[in-house]
Design a protein around this nucleic acid. Sequence first.
RNA 1: GCCGGAGUGGCGGAAUUGGCAGACGCGCUGGAUUCAAAAUCCAGUGGGCUUCGGCCCGUGGGGGUUCAAGUCCCCCCUCCGGUACCA
Length: 883
Amino acid sequence: MPRYNPATIEPKWQAFWDEHQTFASPRLPEGEKMYVLDMFPYPSGDGLHVGHPEGYTATDIVCRAARMQGKSVVHPMGFDAFGLPAEEHAIKTGEHPRVQTEQNIATFRRQLKMLGFSFDWSRELATTDVEYFHWTQWIFLKLYDTWFDDDQQKGRPINELPIPKEVSADGKDAIREYQDDHRLAYQSEAPVNWCPALGTVLANEEVIHGKSERGNHPVERRALRQWMLRITAYASRLEDDLESLDWPEGVKALQRNWIGRSTGAEVDFFLATDDTSNDNWRDSRAKIGFPRKPGDQVLRVYTTRPDTLFGATYMVIAPEHPLVEQLTTSENAEAVKTYCDLAAAKSDLDRTELAKEKTGVFTGSFATNPVNGERIPIWIADYVLVSYGTGAIMAVPAHDERDFEFAKQFNIPIQPVVAPGDSTSEEERSAILAGEQVFAGHGTAINSGDFNGLATADFKEKITAWLTDQGLGRQAINYKLRDWLFSRQRFWGEPFPILHELDDAGEKTGRVQAVDIADLPVDLPHLDDFKPHGRPEPPLDKAPDEWLYPVIDGVRYKRETNTMPQWAGSCWYYLRFLDPTNTEALVDPEIEKAWMPIDLYVGGAEHAVLHLLYARFWHKVLFDRGVISTPEPFQKLVNQGMILGSNNEKMSKSRGNVVNPDEVVKEYGADSLRLYEMFMGPLEQTKPWNMEGVNGVYGFLNRVWRMILDENSEPIALNPTISDALPTEEQNRILHKTIKAVTGDIAKLSFNTAIARMMEFTNFYTKQESRPRDAMQQFVLLLSPFAPHMAEELWQAMGYEKSLAKEAWPAYDEAMLVESEIEIPVQFKGKVRTKIKIPAEANKNQIEALALADARVKELLAGKEILKTIVVPGRLVNFVVKG
RNA sequence: GCCGGAGUGGCGGAAUUGGCAGACGCGCUGGAUUCAAAAUCCAGUGGGCUUCGGCCCGUGGGGGUUCAAGUCCCCCCUCCGGUACCA
């Protein structure tokens, strides 16, 4: 047999696996099921990056080992292929984005196969496949057809939405509007992040510090008609269900943080300020209770600190608040208009990052504090966001950092109502009580009427109950999470299966019609060119009339010309993998039930919030609507760490530190690349690439090769040291130790230590003059998930005709692990001074006796008094001595 | 600021969850082999001191608990990721 040559054996085995469909999984699991998924890649023009194979190798090892352990494994791969780069290429060249997308997919597929991953390629899909986005559109229609029942906390069909009498009294259009207002997919005119450079609007999540996440272009706010998904309806369940998931705590924390649940109270402040009407209002409220909608007689605020109500010295509404006009008195009108116009023109960057100083303007109006009847001024300031809570706050400068700053700026009184606890210094305490320092912590109520002396938590509870009782407020929960802006002004995305009804003049009537399920998919039309026009109207507005203006039952419609964001396709691909060719349903319920949920999901931490939250949201809607059987898709999640360049910096073309997997494979082979990626360090850790390290594992594979094969013999021949002789006790112990360690390490995804154990095995056995055949075979099986090509080659050389992919995983015998004699340290006052040999099973007394009998120990003990002796059987002896 | 994660040799990293710090690999040093080199093999490799027996110091820094601390507790520093007026 010649020397180890990955360039010949790797393609050989890849072809073998392909030809024999070695890794095709059955329709339904046979025995214990395991669904292992990698986050599918976006097929960029640059091809695979060394970061990709890290997670893919990890899951591949898990899958290969699981198959050998008798599990039924499904392990698919596909492509998240919609996206801006392909469209930008199309804009430049005029070539359809599908052409480039398919070329890129071909490159990715070739590279993935080159690395020997055990994917079931018969399940491959791309989000851009028309038959795939057929079902993406189908799910959109499900969202469109669903409303969220708050009482049941569940998505239900829109035709089950109860219609209030006053709505149905107004006729069909009113009912339709009411329904549209409750759908999970709805249209909105709200201001959005319009990015002129990209020619599209962006989701809040795609804007980082006022710039586009992609390309870092400036983003401005503009009102546009957009499709939104009501993810906020699921906020509570999305948060609660995190608990049931085996995910890194950090990722759960990120999602919780993003959802941002807070509990507090809504409180109404009466707007008219004469005493009589205020009293009347309070009386009526005590009778009718707290109304659902505030109306224009009151200013409704949300606060997490209702216990500070007595300290509210002014109020603030957002510049976009609906009551701005009503509350502005004529002498303040000009200043208010100037301020609001300025705020509207400000980008998010100006409003947050740069705005260290608080700004605002007085409306001229006052409101009455419901707890003490005090009249307090109403201001407008852009530090209050219209999109959170009620868009209005009660300001308590003594106990809120932001309000404190504002009050200082505009000379508004500061009234302390919470005294800090004992841990606060006397100086600080008096500063707080004098209103010179802000205190946002919990403490004891002061200046709060009957509530004085209450602890913050008690006060919150009592005042909320009181407010509820008086009809002045109620407990409320708010989320930072916003509804998901779901439309993009792009060509290369899924078309919405939505039609806008047109009147005789060709204008939109405002009525919207879902495309009939039977007419799905709505394919993308042919375009002569793909250039955006720099206006917010999407490129699909340039589509030919026969696509753009369908006529159904004599009514003329215009198709929706927005397309879906890239997230759409990745929200549900894991379901389609289970049943990729089904033409009747997105997935056969029997199949879905058998394979879901995903037992292991591996991907980059950059998807910790968005992809994982969006997918969970869709999953829950599909679950509520009975399409699927599990409430959560991804039971266990692992984030692989980033791989840095050898200079410890992020890999990038501009830094010139990018490592190309093709070149690594060419020089060392796929097995070495795989092994190195796993040997670098823990899967979840960020770690730098080091080409010497690849050379190191390549050396290891060469040693394995020579341990088993005779490198000098041209026909296949085992190394002459290999024989059927019985293994020695030590040989057996090493083998079984290795089996145990590698098996356990794979289960813990601790691949670096598993490889270290195999190296130790090899270091030991290459020194053995006689190598038992059985030990070598077991070792090859252990190695096979990591370096599958070499393992298959060695397996074949050992005389087997079939692939080892389904061979039984080696078992270890605990009895083989025990050593008869072990060496343990003898410590003096916790410091190792010498070592003694003891029988492995020796008990405390025996060990102590053996230690005391040892010559060196005697020497060390001379002239000293033993105060205490600690013996840990099998581990150590420690003498606490004096003198 | 807040929320996560991490600081161990020249480098990547190990360490039954309190029990011999530095497994394994890279690199480096010396040796064997070679005309020479590569490759391979053998030996060594945390720092300091040493009378060559050993001794002292060492897991970001400072305290503490313990017979025993990389591991547990308190305080602090640095780096990475996320987030940023969410009332």
